[in-house]
Amino acid sequence: MDDLYRDYILEHYRHPHNFGTMEDATASYEGANPLCGDRITLQLRVRAGVLDGVSFTGRGCAISQASASLLTDEVKGKPVDEAAKLSSSDVLDLLGIEISPARLKCALLSLDTLQHALGEGSEGATAHAATGGE
């Protein structure tokens, strides 16, 4: 049995969850590993401090895309401050496979992109709330 390309990893790669775009996203961020050509655009919809919608598009290796699929599943419906606390080891646990140092960047691109999107999202959410109050 392959210890890296497990069935569920390949399943997430071939049929990623939360893949697509949202019309009413409140924040988005494009993350990339230029060295590998991995690319992920993550969109968030924050309502009342909760990640009520999460989606992504992208292309890259199986590890980077499966990681984005698993991570978006994990944070969907979570309060923003809880999602912001996710660490590298949480994402590696989600993947559940042994990641070699050379592939860490692939595995963690989704988390890095999420953290950037949340950073923009908090401003976006404020702006959204302000206009929403009219």
Partner: peptide, 22 residues
Amino acid sequence: GVHPHDVAQVLDRVGVAVRAGH
């Protein structure tokens, strides 16, 4: 359908060293 990094990783498992990337 397979990213070059995944190609290189699986090839490595059978002892074949190739480069992947740009």
